[in-house]
Design a protein around this nucleic acid. Sequence first.
DNA 1: GCCCAGGAGTGCA
DNA 2: TGCACTCATGGG
Length: 272
Amino acid sequence: MIIDYPGEYFSVKDTLECGQIFRFSPCRDGYTLVSADKVCFLKNEGDRVYIDCDDPDYFYAYFDLDRDYKEIYSEAVNYGIPFLTHAANKGKGIRILNQNREEMLFSFIISQNNNIPRIKKTIEAICASIGDKITFHGEEYSAFPSAETLASQSKEFFRSLGAGYRDEYLCDTAKRVALQGISHLDSLKGEALKCELMKYKGVGGKVADCVALFGFHDTSRFPVDTWLEKVYAEDFCGTEKSRKKMTAYFENLFGEKSGFIQQYLFHAKRNV
DNA sequence: GCCCAGGAGTGCA
DNA sequence: TGCACTCATGGG
């Protein structure tokens, strides 16, 4: 099944390479992508996007195809902030993905004080090692492991695959999720959701914001990492020093559009 | 060899 | 509350 969608506000490359997803790789003239236990191939061609998959309903929601991103782009530009306007123009094809919640939780625990190539490598190694095998168009892929499967691994297992000192965070969180699930978070939003997420070991403010934004689609979150610290100081003339206060500043400024605008800014700053 | 990366936990004032 | 320190590791 192929989803055919307008490409003006959907850049496959920018959407995948802006740090919200780690399980994708270039393939022919596009990318293959794995989310939880599902695979798709997608590409821009002309002014269209084509998504080839076995579960179109899942990926329709996953790529947020019901949302009007032209409106988000326009609102970003209307702030009249020079760097934001520049960033929105560069990244107007970025979409916020609706990703699997558990996968986001474990992935962003690995992301702390780490770089994207190594995050991808570690996650891929874990999936290849203990994820269920899935087949798509004759090729084999590995699903993201269940919390139960993750919980049955030792600290040494995660460390040997490159997780470093985050090994115990993964073990601890996996055991909790395997025991309790995360459905008790489904109805939460905003500060309440963030607060609950921060109860997992290895999840601080920034990781909680990423999980809330990319896993729960809570677009009122504005994750501040090292790149957004630079944006804050260099492009918004900010004077606060703590990430907590920077986050509060941005979320107060951008409200429910925080998550989208954060991705524009992250993408622009990271690509010099 | 040094600095950095989608930071967080801990201890101490 | 607010610092300083520490954590593992590959890339540039």
